[in-house]
Design a protein around this nucleic acid. Structure first.
Lengths: 240, 240
DNA sequence: GATGATTTGTACGTATGTATA
DNA sequence: ATATACATACGTACAAATCAT
């Protein structure tokens, strides 16, 4: 009974193969959920996943546990795993938490960023001005993610960095359309400017408040969209 | 080949058995680490764990993945799992993150607690005064945990609540001795009083600042202790 | 540096619990 | 309500990699 039939260099992308199948699966499943391939509420059948990724059920099970820990799926004992369907309330709480963490990072950045980090942030922010003026939504969205990441990093705290990054990835599907609204690009950049100014002048509480304002406005933009029926599903799909 | 030999009501604590072995194991392993049974740097051998808890390796492996997601252990592919040994720097970052989250919860509590929550917090805080005066370290420590938990809950945000709770449990081993220092009980209560006052008067930024002060002082207390050689290990042990 | 021992990673079988007819 | 079907949970076997000698 040839158990290990087709196991030639699977996962051979990394030269040393320094990654287990379960970990790779966890990443792929997470991406599939974030990307909308596995919509909220969908049941994740072990057999189905095992077949889809051409592995046995064991690594699938371990991957599911890992994904569950990030909050993307919910595993009910003996009843299988389902993609967490976020209620409006939970979504709001995620946005609030995200905003608070971001604001905290901004305050710590204002107080603790070193000169190099400050210069890099300022120059990167300047570059984004051109994208905003040009109306290049995609380029701006990508840069926006990096902009916020720079502020997380400026807090000099791995724990907060990890929390912020994780929250951001979870909320990503709901932000895809945020720069579509007319004039949103320029406004976002103005808000960024207020944050950057506060950080540059070392004003912690101002940086905190400006960032909170910024993220709350993004949240408002989302609310507008989500009031439309089925908004959540269509937003999920956009990234597929 | 009687595979399932002794599977009578294992885990029969909950009436409906609404918990899988792997989950229970994850909890127990986490407790063992937090409690110091598994000291930092220790290798967690799958066979050893399987034997110790009288289960097979499969649930152990799944539990390890879950625990790894909480940051208590680190699993290196093909090299086994080790209990994360926290460096002084990482510990400091954990305390900072904890303080920031707590402060955020305090601010949100000041702004959003309903009258019932406010009254409960206030009366509970009053009860703690007696413990502080009596010098009852154990009772005060237990109540202290509940006190902070009430403030997390007052923020009305599951995400922040979960983050705060998780961080607190990770830092717990390092706080065991915090109320041993002479006069620390009364001082802690005074700091709590400042926080409660700010929450009661609905002053968000004051609540934020007072809580930050409170937690930073706890951190200072820790630093004093950790400067002694081997402090970390001995602190881990105290809870065993 | 090669070989053997130990341990992790994966596959698969079986039983129990949940859902459905 | 009982029985049937199906998916999950756990145990065991084997393969591959790491480590120790």
């Amino acid at each position: 009974m040839s158990t290990m039939r087709d196991r030639k260099d699977r996962g051979g992308s990394k030269a040393n193969g320094q990654e287990t199948l379960a970990e790779k699966l966890a990443g792929e499943i997470g991406q599939a959920i974030l990307g909308g391939d596995f919509p909220p509420g969908m049941r994740l059948d072990e057999h189905m996943l095992a077949e889809r990724f051409a592995v046995s059920r064991t690594p699938v099970r371990e991957a599911l546990r890992q994904v569950a820990a990030t909050g993307l799926i919910e595993v009910r004992p003996r009843r299988g795993a389902i993609v967490t369907s976020i209620t409006a309330e939970q979504l709001a709480e995620l946005f609030v938490a995200m905003g608070e963490i971001e604001a905290t990072c901004a305050r710590l950045s204002a107080l603790g960023m070193n000169p190099i980090e400050r210069r890099r942030l300022e120059s990167f922010h300047s570059e984004m001005a051109q994208m905003a003026e040009a109306g290049d939504e995609k380029a701006y969205a990508d840069s926006n993610a990096r902009f916020h990441q720079m502020i997380y990093a400026g807090a000099h705290n791995r724990v907060l960095l990890e929390m912020a990054t994780n929250l951001r990835s979870r909320l990503d599907p709901f932000r895809r359309a945020q720069f579509r609204a007319p004039g949103r690009l320029m406004r976002s950049h103005q808000e960024h400017d207020a944050v950057v100014s506060a950080i540059m002048s070392g004003d912690g509480s101002a940086a905190h408040q400006r960032m909170l304002d910024h993220v709350n406005l993004v949240e408002d933009a989302f609310e507008t969209l989500s009031r439309m029926a089925g908004a959540r599903k269509s937003m999920q799909r956009q990234s597929a």
